[in-house]
Structure formats: structure tokens, C-alpha cells
Design a protein around this nucleic acid. Structure first.
Length: 570
RNA sequence: AGGGGCGUCGCCAAGUGGUAAGGCAGCGGGUUUUGAUCCCGCCAUUCGUAGGUUCGAGUCCUUCCGCCCCUGCCA
């Protein structure tokens, strides 16, 4: 990069086009260049009311990514203004997910609730300036007064209370003297604004709920609008990045900043949230899948949650790369899951050691191989990475191959084992099938075959090369295991599109559990967090929830790209 | 009396008045002891629409069309 002395290097950099900056990067670069800020600060502000999903990963990568890229800081701030829906379990899972993705927040974890005292004082400031009032309208009345999208609202009958009266009433609210829903504190802005957010929005409401951070200290809680911008200001956030649906809130965000003695002026910028087809990314719907038992918890490997994907075998690098590739814009769109799948395969192909595991075993007896002989073969852990080393595999008289890798007869396109034909056993011998033994119902239960002498690491001397290579495992020295094959949770490309119930779109075959799978013994050393490619099958990892030493359980993260399977279907 | 956004290849996405990047998917071909990877090639005479301005428009102006968000004491 800094090699200015090499003409080759400089030619290279001239030839390689730099990735264009997205609009947030352009804004930040300009702010830095023009001295609007000397150092930027962002924040990732999740509400701890659920687990993080792939959509949050985009926001995390953006916020932490900007801080990293431009030498600034990024805070993790829990937006905890609604104690009824939030809890510590969610707080902990969110911290874990952010760290797992590879990001570190600046200093201590922040909570909006850290600022409740300040926010309360600012509410009083607003009241004293005649900019907020206690309103006794109930929820239903409030709705009537609010007007509609096409009609202005009308002023609350309580709007003109005196400052003294409001101060006294708000203090009583805080002291718990009123019932929930009986009154609220509202900003006094404009009931006729075409922007409904400006029609005297509620800034404090009564909730006699225990808060996971502040306990029972408060029975009134600030609204999102009253808390977010001011929290940004307190933390010195320069670029407050959020999703598009908050754009209508920006005038209100700015209104509070303008009318309160805040220590800094943060700016809000909006980008399009991530949508992925064949999936739902709504905390409400994900929660429903969990609560109603459609999946095995928030971290079910089929869930698009960060924790589910982690358990499934996705890597932080693959997720970060995905977020990098999809870009950051202001136009809503739906990213094809194929893009995500490409990113996992790409990372795992480059980095996952290879191993062999037979999912649906078919016994092969090598009739010309001594029954008691065991050869320890050495095979590479990766076809193009010597640094990943080699491993030992026992070769024996009987082996297992995949049921689908044998056919009694087949056309020339079939490159596996066929009766009377040859195939290469990966890293071992070329074998030739002589006989298929069947049970009473005609199912093939065993193959009798011969090894072709001298084919270890070499082609047959008679010049008859096998057409293909298949994976195998010793029938006498292997590891019995369970393998779980996941398919997409939904068959519908847009399960949560308007009008339909997303549960109706669920794929009934989204999980296939295979028992009695035969893995090579080296896999017995694997630990949770390791990723493997089971050759010719896909990428797998140990399941963190169900795997035990006695009975390993492997999750298929993603299959290998399969041009043969696609061709067969046609 | 409505307001705020967004429309560039099947999908994502550059483009910031000078003659349509890139990635995913797809399709051909090559290498291969993984039907994987890798490599090579193909894949938008046109940017929602219709006008206008200009020597020149995806970029500027106007018209219309389509989609998304907003009427929680959720965030």
C-alpha cells in the first residue's frame, strides 16, 4: 500500500478501481475535510426487546464500520425506554452478538436509562419555557384529537395550563400519583402540522413497571423521540444513523435539540433497512416463531438472527462481507439470499478444513483387500492451502459410500460408481464395482467391489481412468453422528408481504435430521466454532446445543454449489 | 390538507451534464483426485413515463406512473 517506490505497485493501484463510497461515507468524509467535525462518533442503539438479526448486522457494520474507517468511536447504547418489553437476557445476547461480529464499542456500554435524570430535567426545562404540558386526554381521546393523515388535529383542552400547574402535575406524575394512561407530558408544537410527529407528541408517559436497569426508581418513562436525540447529544454523537422510517421524526429530533440546552448538535441520517427474500426480519414475527414453538429458540439455526446464524455455522467474516457487498443506500430493496449464501461459501471455501462424512451410508466390501488390513492414508486438509496441513485416515476392507453415489446403470454423465465401472475413492484407491447385493424388497444393501492395485495417488496402469471421485469413510473405524440439514424456513419469497399470514408460508421440510451418519474419526476432535467442509456435501459445524461427546451433532451451514443436482432436475 | 422518501440488467449497486463500473444470479468454455474452488468469455444502444433545456441528459426542469413510510401513552 505504501510502496511508492515500485512502479508495478503504483500501476496496480491505478488499474484497480477503488470501491465507490456510499452516501454516508461521502457525508462523513466531507464533514471531516471541511472541519465540521475533527473526529466522528456513531452509535448502535438497539432496544433490548429481542435478539439481533441480519438486518441489525447491517446497521452494526455501518455504525461501527464508519467509526473504524474514519478513526472515530462507536457506542453501544441500549435504547431502554420501554421496560415492559425489555429485559436483561436481550441485553446480554446483543452484547454477545456485537462482539462476535468482531466489533468493540467505545468505553462502557451505554443505556438511555443512564440519562433519565437529565431527560427529566430537560422535560421540566420545556415546561418552564411553555413548550410542554401535562395532558389528561386518554389514549382514545388523544387519537381523536390527533386528526388523520389528511386532516389537521385539534388542540388538547389541557394545552393552555399554566407553567406552575404543569410543573406540579408533572411532579405528581413522577411521584406515582396518577394511574397509567390517565395523563402524559406532551411537547407543545403544532396540532395542524402535516407531519403527525409534530402534533404535540407525547414525551413522557406513566408506566408503573420495573426497569431492568433502573429498578423501581421511575414510574414515568421518556418516549423514543424525547430520548434519542438528546442521548446522542449527551454522548457527542456526530452522525446518528438510523433507518428510513425515522425520517419523519427528524424534524422532531431537531426540535428538541434546538429547544434544549444540549451539549452538542448531532445530525440524523437515514438509510434503507435490509430486507432478504425467503425470510422475515421483524422482531415481532421472529418472536412469534419462538414463542409459538415453530423454531427451537431465538438461536435456532434456521433463524435469521445473529445467534441463529452463528449456531448454523456462519462466520463473522461472511456476515461482514455480506454487509459490505449489499451497500448502503436510501432505496428499499430485497436482497437475494443467494448473495448471503455466496458470502458464506466464499469464506468457508477459503478457510474451512475438509473432512469426509457419509450421510446416507451404503456398505462397500473390497473383496481383494485383506480383511484385517488397515492402511493409514495421508490426505490434505485443503486442496489449495498447504498451511492447513494433512490428516490421517484409515483405509479398510469395508467402507461406506453415499447411497446416491452408486447406480446399477447410468448414462455417461453420471460420474460416480456404476456396476462394472470405476470410481476414485477420495485420497485412496480407484475401485471397480462387481456386484450389488439386495435385500428381500430389492433395496441395495451392499456393494462388492475391488480396489485397482497401484492406484494410490496414481491413475490405473491400464489407462482406464475413473470418471469421478467420491467420498467415503471406513466401515470399521469411523465416528457415528447425527447430521441436521436445514432448508429455508419459508417457501414464499416474501413471507411477510401485505395481506398474508407469514406462518402459512413456512416450509414444512425446513429441517431433516439424519441419524447414523458416518464421519471420519478426525472429526471427533472438533469443537463448537470449528467449520468444516464435508467433501462434496457442504459446510458443517458442531451444534452448540445438542452435540455431545458421545453423540456429535453436525449442522449443515450451507450446501456446496451443485451444478449436477440442478442438471438432474431438468 | 396531507406529509416524507425511492425508482439504473432477474437481485444488489456505481454514476454528482461528456457518451451506462462492479458484485450476485444465469449462460458458454478451460483446469481439477470435491459435479466444489479457480480461470476465461457472454450478459443494459439504455437508466419508471412523457415532454423540455443543452453541442451533449441516467444526471437539470416539468408531467404523469409505480412502490415504501407516517394517524402506538412501540422503537
Amino acid at each position: 500500500m505504501s510502496d511508492n517506490h515500485s512502479p508495478i505497485a503504483s500501476n496496480d493501484t491505478a488499474d484497480v478501481k477503488a470501491k465507490p463510497l456510499h452516501f454516508i461515507q461521502q457525508i462523513i468524509r466531507k464533514d471531516l475535510e471541511q472541519g465540521v467535525h475533527s473526529k466522528i462518533a456513531t452509535r448502535f442503539p438497539p432496544e433490548p426487546n429481542g435478539y439481533l438479526h441480519i438486518g441489525h448486522a447491517k446497521s452494526i457494520c455501518l455504525n461501527f464500520g464508519m467509526a473504524e474507517e474514519f478513526g472515530g468511536i462507536c457506542n453501544l447504547r441500549f435504547d431502554d425506554t420501554n421496560p415492559e418489553k425489555e429485559n436483561e437476557e436481550f441485553v446480554n445476547s446483543i452484547m454477545e452478538d456485537v462482539k462476535w461480529l468482531g466489533f468493540q464499542w467505545d468505553g462502557k456500554v451505554k443505556y438511555t436509562s443512564d440519562y433519565f435524570d437529565q431527560l427529566y430535567a430537560w422535560a421540566i426545562h420545556l415546561i418552564k419555557n411553555g413548550l410542554a404540558f401535562v395532558c389528561d386526554l386518554n389514549a382514545e381521546q388523544m387519537r381523536e384529537y390527533r386528526g388523520t393523515l389528511v386532516e389537521p388535529g385539534k388542540n388538547s383542552p389541557y394545552r393552555e395550563r399554566t407553567v406552575e400547574e404543569n410543573l406540579a402535575l408533572f411532579e405528581k406524575m413522577r411521584a406515582g400519583e396518577f394511574e397509567e394512561g390517565s395523563c402524559s407530558l406532551r411537547a407543545k408544537i403544532d396540532m395542524s402540522s402535516p407531519n403527525i410527529n409534530l402534533r404535540d407528541p407525547i414525551i413522557y408517559r406513566i408506566k408503573k413497571a420495573h426497569h431492568h436497569q433502573t429498578g423501581d426508581k421511575w414510574c414515568i418513562y421518556p418516549s423514543y423521540d424525547f430520548a434519542h436525540g438528546q442521548s446522542d447529544a449527551i454522548e457527542g454523537i456526530t452522525h446518528s444513523i438510523c433507518t428510513l422510517e425515522f425520517e419523519d421524526h427528524k424534524p422532531l429530533y431537531d426540535w428538541f435539540i434546538q429547544h434544549l440546552p444540549v451539549p452538542a448538535i448531532p445530525r440524523q441520517y437515514e438509510f434503507a433497512r435490509l430486507n432478504i427474500n425467503y425470510a422475515v426480519t421483524s422482531k415481532r414475527k421472529l418472536k412469534q416463531l419462538v414463542d409459538e414453538g415453530y423454531v427451537d429458540g431465538w438461536n435456532d439455526p434456521r433463524m435469521p438472527t445473529i445467534s441463529g446464524m452463528r449456531r448454523r455455522g456462519f462466520t463473522p467474516a461472511s456476515l461482514r462481507n455480506f454487509c459490505e457487498r449489499i451497500g448502503v443506500t436510501r432505496s428499499d430493496g430485497v436482497v437475494d439470499v443467494g448473495m448471503l449464501e455466496f458470502c458464506v461459501r466464499d469464506d468457508l471455501d477459503k478457510n474451512a478444513p475438509r473432512a469426509m462424512c457419509v450421510l446416507r451410508p451404503l456398505k462397500v466390501t473390497l473383496t481383494n483387500y485383506p480383511a484385517d488390513k488397515v492402511e493409514i492414508l495421508t490426505v490434505h486438509n485443503h486442496p489449495n492451502r498447504d498451511d492447513l496441513g494433512d490428516r490421517a485416515i484409515p483405509f479398510t476392507h469395508t467402507v461406506f459410500i453415499e447411497q446416491e453415489d452408486f447406480r446399477e446403470e447410468a448414462n455417461k454423465k453420471y460420474k460416480r460408481l456404476v456396476l462394472g465401472k470405476r470410481v476414485r475413492l477420495r485420497g485412496a484407491y480407484v475401485i471397480e464395482a462387481d456386484e450389488a447385493i439386495k435385500d428381500a424388497t430389492g433395496n441395495i444393501i451392499e456393494i462388492r467391489a475391488r480396489i485397482i492395485e497401484g492406484t494410490l495417488g496414481k491413475d490405473p496402469e491400464d489407462g482406464v481412468k475413473p470418471k469421478g471421485v467420491i467420498h467415503w469413510v471406513s466401515a470399521t473405524q469411523h465416528l457415528d453422528c447425527e447430521v441436521r440439514l436445514y432448508d429455508r424456513l419459508f417457501n414464499d419469497e416474501a413471507p411477510d408481504a401485505g395481506g398474508k399470514n407469514f406462518l402459512d408460508a413456512m416450509n414444512p421440510n425446513n429441517l431433516e435430521i439424519l441419524q447414523g451418519c458416518k464421519a471420519e474419526i478426525s472429526l471427533g476432535n472438533s469443537i463448537v466454532g470449528n467449520n468444516f467442509q464435508f467433501e462434496r456435501q457442504g459446510y458443517f459445524c458442531l451444534d452448540s446445543k445438542y452435540s455431545t461427546v458421545e453423540k456429535p451433532v453436525f449442522n449443515r451451514t450451507i450446501s456446496l454449489k451443485d451444478s449436477f443436482g440442478k442438471e438432474e432436475q431438468e
